[in-house]
Write a protein that binds this DNA or RNA. Sequence first.
DNA 1: ACAGTTTCTGACCGATCGGTCAGCTACCGT
DNA 2: ACGGTAGCTGACCGATCGGTCAGAAACTGT
Lengths: 185, 185
Amino acid sequence: MSTHDDLRDIALNEFAVAGYAGTSLQRIAELAGLSKSSVLYHYSSKEALLEAAIGPAIDKMDAILDSVGKAPLVDDTRRVFIEQFVDFLLANRLEVHMFINQGPGLEDVPVIDRANALVVKLGNFFSSTVSTVEDKLRFGIALGGAAYVLSVKQDDSLEILPVDEVRAALVTIVSELLAPVSIRN
Amino acid sequence: MSTHDDLRDIALNEFAVAGYAGTSLQRIAELAGLSKSSVLYHYSSKEALLEAAIGPAIDKMDAILDSVGKAPLVDDTRRVFIEQFVDFLLANRLEVHMFINQGPGLEDVPVIDRANALVVKLGNFFSSTVSTVEDKLRFGIALGGAAYVLSVKQDDSLEILPVDEVRAALVTIVSELLAPVSIRN
DNA sequence: ACAGTTTCTGACCGATCGGTCAGCTACCGT
DNA sequence: ACGGTAGCTGACCGATCGGTCAGAAACTGT
């Protein structure tokens, strides 16, 4: 893998675990075995590094939302979307954990604005069909809960578990959480 | 309210939204209408401020866990514990959100070690009865999801909702997530 | 062998960080 | 009226922050 991509991966990992503000360019440089100057050669600023770290994931999720369209979630459409959603979470767990938990408090950063807009978009997507207090909470718990459980995955014994099993369990749980009232009983 | 308590509340709020590393003593001082020196008069260090902000909540949750004892969660015991748990989350949403999401990455800070130990203790508490992959995920989603949804509560329209309704919905959802397999069907 | 480009570096910059300290101000009991 | 203490402040400290810049080093095609 190229030095450029190495830096992006290292930065993403550090941003997710220590926070954007809590991660220094010096620290990233040390982890990459480079000098701070070299990091700034590959990325013109700390913000550019953040953009490279979480920007693509935001674009991907945006694409998923657009492809599903504005149609209400019923039957197969709902099941397919949830599977896409879970796959996205599995492939981009650190990114999601980042802009879920650091989105507020990092305002005035362009890429963070996109991230926050994405979360709002996700919320509107679900609340288009339901909007009771409980259903709002259900959506938030599914999103924040999945992001959390996948972000600490590496610390627990969960890391060595087969991905397929985790995916299946996640689909089950998220489906249960997001099931419309008409189906829930 | 006293200046001392004011500072603790302001710090907790800023730590939760901007992160511990992302919050400067200068910022806290400005929000309190004081100088940085005054902040350090009331609290001897930034770490002491963190301890005051989240320490009490950790002690409270510890007490709850101890009072329930090591008995497996069955029948009424389980229901009572979940209600206590939800009430704790509602009363300490910022604290929980903090040491859930900033626990890793803030090592070497004494009070954070206590927080991390608490999360592990919580995990063991639930996995004493069940330990399948799905059940581990269910616990994590309930904990991380509830912490997330309550921490962003203020941004959404959720803020003005009656507390009772939120509490009831949370109890329902958490119970559903943490229900043992024998009950789930 | 040489010129050109990419990669990388140390020295340096102003700003801000957490924290110390001497001293100012305001209120309190006597 | 006065000494003591609690609250608060600006000046200052060394360290670290993100970022700039001139140039060394390494690799390229010819």
